[in-house]
């Protein structure tokens, strides 16, 4: 399979990439290419120009700024799971290790994954649960979008035309906080049929804060407030987690359905994986 004709250029800075995007309305950014190139081979996507941002040094770094871990958008999945700064952010490591396979993790990037916003991608759920802030830059300048406002629907994000994801800021977990990611995967592609990221803070044995986010379940990754609110103020026990997890995916929302999993089965899996991710985050 061969993509349709396309021009290729490499941007050497974020500024240059933004300028090229503005000048070429039919252009697309290319990072790892592991969502875009397969789509171009299937002719689902035919940009006139690819602007390669994978080698822009200012987009490929991981640093500890004291209260946050900041990840450049062009960092690969492999860069992330092998970086010592990510140690305390267990859900990031657990999710990254389950993305595709070795080869995919060596090419695919965090920025590419969240900009693509596949409803079954792993990173979006984790970024929601960890309350990530997403820094984007366009011709008008920079802005920060909280993860909770970034994933707006089926392959849709809050990015405006001409904007680039530049950095992902992950607040460092406070003492007593921990996170986990569990997924039931499509056996061939390893994309999530249901993936759940949980982040929990426990004070004196009692849950004081919790985020539970799903991918694969609906049009876009989302925070499940029903599960989280049922946990607050409760002792961190398996019984309480199981009771709260039974509220998963129950709101008024679209539930995905395909030949792997019916809506009823997906809802069931959401409850099971919420329980497992929460138990993981609580060390149970």
């Amino acid at each position: 399979m061969i993509p349709s004709s396309v021009d290729y250029t490499r941007a050497s800075s974020v500024g240059e990439a933004i300028r090229l995007l503005a000048e070429n309305p039919d252009a697309k950014l290319l990072a790892g290419g592991h969502s875009l190139i397969p789509a171009m081979k299937l002719r689902l996507n035919s940009p006139a120009l690819l602007i390669d941002i994978a080698r822009i040094a200012e987009l490929r770094f991981i640093e500890d700024t004291g209260n946050a871990i900041v990840i450049g958008a062009a960092s690969t999945h492999a860069d992330i799971i092998t970086n010592p700064h990510l140690k305390g952010l267990t859900a990031m490591i657990e999710a990254g290790e389950l993305i595709g396979d070795t080869q995919v993790r060596n090419m695919g990037t965090l920025g590419g994954s969240i900009a693509h916003a596949d409803p079954s991608a792993d990173w979006p759920a984790v970024l929601l649960a960890l309350e990530a802030q997403i820094k984007v830059q366009g011709a008008e300048g920079e802005r920060i979008i909280p993860a909770a406002e970034f994933f707006t629907g089926f392959f849709s994000t809050a990015l405006d035309t001409g904007e680039i994801v530049t950095e992902i800021h992950l607040p460092k977990p406070a003492a007593g906080s921990a996170s986990a990611y569990r997924k039931f995967m499509q056996p061939a592609s390893r994309f999530a049929i249901v993936g759940c990221a949980a982040s929990v803070s426990v004070e004196g044995g009692v849950i004081s804060a919790a985020n539970v986010a799903f991918t694969g379940v609906s049009d876009a990754a989302f925070l499940d407030e029903g599960v989280a609110s049922a946990l607050i103020g409760k002792p961190a026990t398996l019984e309480n987690i199981e009771a709260a997890a039974s509220a998963a995916a129950e709101g008024d929302m679209h539930i995905n359905e395909d030949h792997f999993a019916s809506q009823a089965y997906r809802k069931h899996l959401a409850k099971v994986y919420a329980k497992r991710a929460l138990a993981g985050a609580c060390g149970l």
């Binding site: 592991h34 396979d101 080869q103 060596n106």
Partner: peptide
Amino acid sequence: DTSSCGACTIHLDGKAIKSCSLLAAQ
């Protein structure tokens, strides 16, 4: 040819990647 089988695996700067899912220009 759909990024699944790994028969096209090579090393790019020392890392295994699937060469059917990458442009030569990259």
